[in-house]
Structures are given as C-alpha cells and as structure tokens.
C-alpha cells in the first residue's frame, strides 16, 4: 500500500469525522445535504458487502466498518437526532436523476455480471456523483459554513490522492482498475470549482459565499 493510498484513506476518514464533529458540537446540521449523506451511506453499504465474502486485511476490514458507522451515524444525526435543524427546503436535488443513470450504467459496464459485482460497480458510479446534492445546496443558498468547506476539501483531497495512488499502482504493480479510475477522475473534476473557491476564499479567512 503506497503513501498516497494511506493519506487518501486518512483524508476520507478525517472528512467524515469533521462533519460528524461539527454536527455533534453545534447540535445543528443546517447547510448539510442529507441527500448526499444518504447516498454515501448507500455507497458504503453496496460496496462493502464483500466484508461477508472476502477477507483482504485487518486494515481493510476495520476501515470499512468505521466508514459504514460514520455514514450511518451522520444520516441518523440529520434525519433523527437533529432533524429540526435540517435545512430540507434547500436540499432539493432530485435523486432519481442520479440513481436511474447510475443503476443503468452499473448493469451495462461492470467486470462481472453477478449481484455482488453489480452492486460494487453501482457504488463506484454512485460515489462519483454523490456529492452533487451538497454542491447544489451550496449553490442554491450561496454560502457554506467554514467547517462544511473543510469537510468538502478533505473529501476532494481524498479523491485527488486516490488518483496519485492509481498512477503509483500502475507504475509499480501494473494494476489498473478502469471502472474506479474513470469514475474517480469524474468525481475529482466535480471538486475543482470548489477547490478554487476554497483556496481563494476560505484559506484567506473569508466565509465561502457565492456572488
């Protein structure tokens, strides 16, 4: 496992913990898209079914379980514990616009036409677009709280580090996961506009607000 992969996973974990910590401390989930969080919970659920079929490593198993827990606790905070603070009027992205093409594509383009493999492929395609309801919400309200932007930054950083991980794996192991790489590139592109705003505004101490 190369350094980009480890840093990518840690960045992913940090993003989820930042979000959970923010909701927990402020007892408020305004500005967070519950729909994106449901999609991420669905991504982990459909991808990590191999917890029951394949053992890869202790690291792999522990991280999968932690990711699943974080995703479900976040969804529970938004729709359960702190639902009164959830800004549902601004979380209006139509999920069927994402789910229908993603389901269709995972049946058409996969490594193996088996239920587990189609679900894994579905999770890869879905992850690449799961952040869109959150980005849509920010563009609708025109602003985001600083910790929300740190969350998005580390989530985007995780994607960028995975790209470096794939380049390294291709060089050293000749490993090339076409489905993951193509989806990963698409996913990273979605963060570019946000990265620009993050560097030009948030890192200079300003709140992220759109003109």
């Amino acid at each position: 496992m190369n350094v980009f992969r480890i840093l990518g996973d840690l960045s992913h974990l940090l993003a989820m913990i930042l979000l959970l910590g923010k909701i927990w401390r402020s007892k408020c989930c305004a500005g967070i898209s519950g729909k994106s969080q449901i999609l991420f919970a669905l991504v982990f659920t459909t991808r990590y079914l191999d917890l029951f079929t394949n053992f890869i490593s202790i690291y792999n198993t522990v991280m999968k379980v932690v990711f699943l827990l974080c995703a479900y606790v976040t969804v529970y905070m938004i729709y359960g514990k702190f639902r009164k603070t959830f800004d549902s009027e601004n979380d209006t992205f139509r999920l069927e616009f994402l789910l229908v093409p993603v389901i269709g594509l995972s049946f058409l383009e996969n490594y193996n036409f088996t239920p587990l493999e189609i679900l894994w492929t579905f999770s890869i395609y879905l992850e690449s677009v799961a952040i869109l309801p959150q980005l849509f919400m920010i563009s609708k309200t025109g602003e985001a709280e600083t910790i929300t932007t740190h969350y998005l930054f580390f989530l985007g950083l995780y994607r960028a580090l995975y790209l470096a991980n794939w380049i390294r794996r291709y060089q050293t192991e000749n490993f090339y996961d076409q489905i993951a790489v193509v989806s990963g590139v698409v996913q990273t592109i979605f963060y570019c506009d946000f990265f620009y705003l993050y560097v030009t505004k948030v890192l200079k101490g300003k709140k992220l607000s759109l003109p």
């Binding site: 890869i56 894994w120 996961d177 076409q178």
Partner: peptide, 10 residues
Amino acid sequence: VDPSAGHDEL
C-alpha cells in the same frame, strides 16, 4: 481486474 480476488481499495 479480476474481481473474484475482491476489491482491496476503500
């Protein structure tokens, strides 16, 4: 990619 070996990435 041979998916029968499992997917090692998260």
